[in-house]
Design a protein around this nucleic acid. Structure first.
Lengths: 332, 332
DNA sequence: ATCGTTTGTGTAATCGTTTGCACAACGATC
DNA sequence: GATCGTTGTGCAAACGATTACACAAACGAT
C-alpha cells in the first residue's frame, strides 16, 4: 500500500489472498457481471488493501481495445493548437480515454512516429497536422477505426472529418477593409507546404476577387511571432501594401509590431492587419486583433462527437462542417 | 497493405506465410538476436508486404516495459507549460517513448486520472503539477520507477527531482527596482493552493526584506491574463503600490494592460511590473516584459537526463537544481 | 419431491508477443 | 572420425487480464 513495493500485485495473487479465482477478481472490477455483491465488496476491500488495480495493458490485449487516442499535431507551443489540445484532452479524459500526443516538426519523423503509435493499437486517431496526407494516415492506421482528419479541404476518402469553412467570414472581413478604403493587400502565409494554408488564402483571395482585387504581395513564415515580424518588415520594405492578411494570429501580432516599430505605421489607419484562429490572446487588451476566428469549443465538441459515434460502432464516415466568424478588433 | 483491412495480422499468421515459427518473426524484429540474416531479410520483406508490425501492447505485457511516459500537468493552454511540453515531447519521441498527457483542473480528477494512467504501466512519470502531493504520487505510482517531480521545494522523499531556484535572480530584480526608487510592492499570486507559488513569492519577499521592505498588498488570480487584469485593477484601486510582482508572465501582461488602460499608468515610470517564467511571448516587441526567467531547454534537458538514468537502471534518486535568471525588459 | 430457472463461481482458452531451453546442422579442431 | 563450439530454429511457457462454458447451489412453482 504505502512504501516501495517494487512489483505490482496480479489478479491471480489477489485471488489467492481473497480466497477466490482470478476470474472472480476480474468480475469484481467489471461493472455489470454476475457476481455476488458480498464477494465483490470483499474483493474490493482486499484490493484496496494491497493496492491492486487491473493491468490495463493486459486488459487491452484481451479486449482488443486500448482506450488510447493518438493526437497528431504540428506543435504544442503554438497557442492555437495548445488551446485546442487542452479542450480535447479534457474531453477525452472525462471519457476515460488517454491521449498520446504525436508532435513532430519534419515529415519523415511524422510518419515514423505515426507508425510507432499505431503499434500501440490506439482506438482513435485525430490528425490536426495538415502536412500528413490522408493516404499516409489511412495506410498507417489501417486497422484503427477510420481516422478523424480535421481541417479538411474535401477529398474523396472514406474517412470521418471535420471541415473548417471560413469563406463567408473572410468575405465579411475583406468587405469591411475594402470599405475602409484599403486596396493593396498582401498575404503572409504560415507555411509553404500546407494545404490548409492554401485553402485559407483562397477564402480571402476569392473575397478580394469579388471586389476586383487580388493579393499584390506574398510572403512565407512559419506561424511564429518572429517570422511574422521579419517577413512583414521585408514585405513592407519592398511593396506599398496597406493591408496584410496573416496565416495565424501569432504572425499577425508579429506583423503588427513590425509595422508599428520598424515602419512607424499604426493600425488600422495606416495599415490593416488580420489574423486567423481566434486564440485567446487575440482578445487581450494589448492586441485587440481583428481575426477570422474559429470557435474552438465547438470544434473540439465536434471531434469528440465523431469519436463517440465511432466508439458506439458507427464508423461513418461522419463529416461536420464549422464556420469561422470574424472577431472585430482595432487592427483592421 | 492498402485498403481497409479490418484486422491486423499477427506474428503467428505471418509465421505461416513466411514458413517459419512465430519466435523467428519476433527475432527478426529484435536488433540483436540469433537469426540468419537471410531469414531476417525474407521475413522483413514479407512483413512489409502484409503490413505487419509487432503489437506493442502484447510486447509490453511480456517485457514489463511499456515505453509510455505520463506527464502530469496543470494546463496545456498556459504558454509556459505548452512550451515546456513541446520540448519534452520532442525529446521523448526521439527516444521512442510515447507521452501520455494528464491534464487536470481539479484535485479529485487529478488523482483519479493518475490512477488510470498507472494502470497502463507507464515506465516513467513526470509531474509538473504543483498541486499533487508527493505522497499521493508515490502511492499511486508505487510500482513505477521513482517519480520525477519538478519544481520541488525540497522534501525528504526518496524521489528524483528537478529543483528550480530563483532566489538569486529575484534578488537582482528587486535590487534593480528598489534602485529605481520604487518602495511599495504587491504580489499577485497565480493561485492560492500551490506551494510553487508560495515558494516563488518567498524569493521576492526575502529579497525585499534585505532592503527592509515587505509586500504591502496581495492578490490571487489563476495564472490567466484575465485574472491578471482584473486583480491588478482591484489592487491598484485599493492601494497605492508602485510595483507588482506577478506569479507568471501571462498575468503580468494582464496587469500591465490593466495599469495602462484602466489607470493610465505606464511602465516602468509609474509602476514596475515583473513576470515569471520567461515564455517566448515575454520577449515580443509589444510586451518586452521584465521577468524572472527559467531556461526551458535546460529544464527539459534535465528532465530527460533523469529519465535516461532511470532507463539505464540507476534509479537514484537524482536531483538537479536550475537557477532562474532575470530577463530585463521595459516593464521594470 | 421434482423440475426449471436464476445466481455465483471456477476452469481453461485466449489475446500477441518474447525468450529460455532443446536440438539439429555445420565447420573447425585435434 | 570423434569432439566441440557456433549458429539458426522451433517448442512451449510466460506476461495478466477477460470470458465462454460448465456446474453447483439456491430458490420458486407445481
Amino acid at each position: 500500500m504505502s512504501g516501495t513495493n517494487r512489483r505490482r500485485i496480479t489478479s491471480k495473487e489477489l485471488a489467492k489472498l481473497a480466497g477466490v479465482s482470478s476470474a472472480t477478481i476480474s468480475r469484481a472490477f467489471s461493472p455489470d457481471s454476475r457476481i455476488g455483491s458480498a464477494t465483490r465488496d470483499r474483493i474490493l476491500a482486499v484490493a484496496r488493501e494491497y493496492g491492486y488495480q487491473p493491468n490495463a495493458i493486459a486488459r487491452s490485449l484481451n479486449n482488443q481495445r486500448s482506450r488510447l487516442v493518438a493526437l497528431v499535431v504540428n506543435a504544442i507551443g503554438n497557442p492555437c493548437e495548445a488551446e485546442e489540445q487542452q479542450l480535447l484532452v479534457h474531453r477525452l479524459q472525462a471519457r476515460q480515454l488517454l491521449p498520446i500526443i504525436l508532435c513532430c516538426a519534419d515529415h519523415s519523423d511524422r510518419l515514423q512516429l505515426m507508425r510507432l503509435a499505431s503499434t500501440y493499437q490506439v482506438d482513435h486517431v485525430v490528425i490536426f497536422s495538415d502536412m500528413v496526407s490522408m493516404q499516409d494516415a489511412v495506410d498507417i492506421f489501417h486497422t484503427t477505426k477510420p481516422i478523424i482528419v480535421s481541417f479538411e479541404p474535401l477529398e474523396n476518402e472514406d474517412v470521418s472529418n471535420i471541415r473548417i469553412d471560413g469563406a463567408v467570414g473572410a468575405g465579411e472581413i475583406i468587405d469591411k477593409i475594402v470599405g475602409d478604403g484599403k486596396r493593396r493587400f498582401a498575404y503572409l502565409s504560415g507555411t509553404k507546404s500546407s494545404w490548409i494554408d492554401k485553402l485559407r488564402r483562397k477564402w480571402f483571395a476569392d473575397a478580394l476577387a469579388r471586389h476586383g482585387l487580388a493579393f499584390e504581395a506574398e510572403a512565407f513564415g512559419d506561424y511564429s511571432y518572429d517570422s511574422g515580424f521579419k517577413e512583414a518588415v521585408l514585405l513592407l520594405h519592398r511593396s506599398k501594401v496597406d493591408a496584410i492578411i496573416c496565416g495565424n494570429d501569432v504572425m499577425a501580432i508579429g506583423a503588427r509590431d513590425a509595422a508599428r516599430r520598424v515602419l512607424g505605421k499604426n493600425t488600422p489607419e495606416d495599415i490593416a492587419i488580420v489574423g486567423q484562429d481566434g486564440i485567446a490572446m487575440a482578445a487581450w487588451d494589448c492586441n485587440d486583433l481583428t481575426t477570422l476566428s474559429l470557435d474552438h469549443v465547438a470544434f473540439m465538441d465536434a471531434v469528440v462527437e465523431v469519436i463517440e459515434r465511432h466508439e458506439a460502432g458507427d464508423e461513418g464516415p461522419h463529416s461536420i462542417t464549422l464556420a469561422c466568424t470574424p472577431r472585430w478588433g482595432s487592427t483592421a
